[in-house]
């Protein structure tokens, strides 16, 4: 084996569009979560249906978020809305541009398509074992995403982010006039508000797991690959 040419040590892992979008989106999502938590503090109760205003009708009493988690750090609903409404546009149009671009450059079809075989229980169990052993890459094809990675990226890109955007839009009285069907999809404005909150919680969970895995996989190499695109192939 020693005589064979060693595999290239460093490969181009992420395309420019992916990298640019990743950081813009990361900024937008963090700004939206922080400002969203301030907005949540304005009325800490979630309801189902069209209407809901009284805490006794709430299905969830949301805790009051501490100032370290909120934008701004002091309570200002108006300032939080200013942040939220700006970064909502960054999130929505950023995602739209990224998805169109990633279809055009075949990133989605090539790197994110989940094959049927990957969903077989035996394969998923093997992938889970590999994660527990901190093996995240297929030595045969180290640049490929593993199945859990693909599934979580697909869930975020095609389910959670669109849902959080559309449920947010359904909260707007202007949009409810323009696109009443949007509010209907969610079963009413207060249901949309609940869905919006649940999506935020799931996205936060994704971010926590994502960051934990970046740290476990080698933070310098992983972060560098998302900045310069270059990624050192880990030794098997």
């Amino acid at each position: 084996m020693d005589e064979d040419a060693p595999p290239p040590k460093t490969i181009m892992r992420h395309r420019l569009v992916t990298r640019v979008w990743h950081w813009i989106n990361a900024l937008a999502v963090l700004a939206l979560i922080g400002s969203g938590l301030t907005i949540s503090n304005a009325h800490k109760f979630l309801y189902w249906g069209q209407a809901g205003a009284n805490p006794r009708d709430a299905w969830l009493h949301v805790p009051r978020w501490p100032s370290w988690a909120t934008i701004p750090s002091y309570y200002s609903l108006s300032a939080a809305r200013t942040w939220h409404l700006f970064f909502a546009l960054v999130l929505a149009f950023g995602l739209l541009a990224y998805l169109i671009w990633s279809l055009a450059n075949r990133h989605i079809q090539r790197d994110l398509r989940v094959r049927r075989a990957e969903l077989k229980p035996a394969h998923l169990i093997a992938d889970a074992r590999a994660h527990l052993d901190l093996r995240f890459h297929d030595p045969e094809n180290p640049a490929a995403y593993n199945s859990f990675q693909k599934l979580s990226y697909v869930a975020v890109l095609f389910v959670l982010l669109p849902l959080v955007i559309f449920s947010g839009l359904a909260l707007s009285p202007g949009m409810d006039a323009a696109w009443p069907w949007l509010t209907d999809i969610f079963g009413g404005r207060q249901s949309a508000r609940s869905v919006h909150f649940i999506c935020m919680a799931l996205l936060t969970l994704f971010i926590v797991v994502h960051l934990a895995l970046v740290i476990l996989a080698g933070p310098l190499n992983e972060v560098r690959s998302m900045i310069t695109g270059k990624w050192k192939v880990p030794e098997a």
Binding site: P72, A79, T82, W83
Partner: peptide, 30 residues
Amino acid sequence: GCDSIGRSGAGKSILESGEDAHRFLQRSIM
């Protein structure tokens, strides 16, 4: 940093441009 961006001139006016953008977009589709 967020607090000072939200309070200061340029950062504040960039963030506040979101309101005009939403008004423009909503009025365009309705």
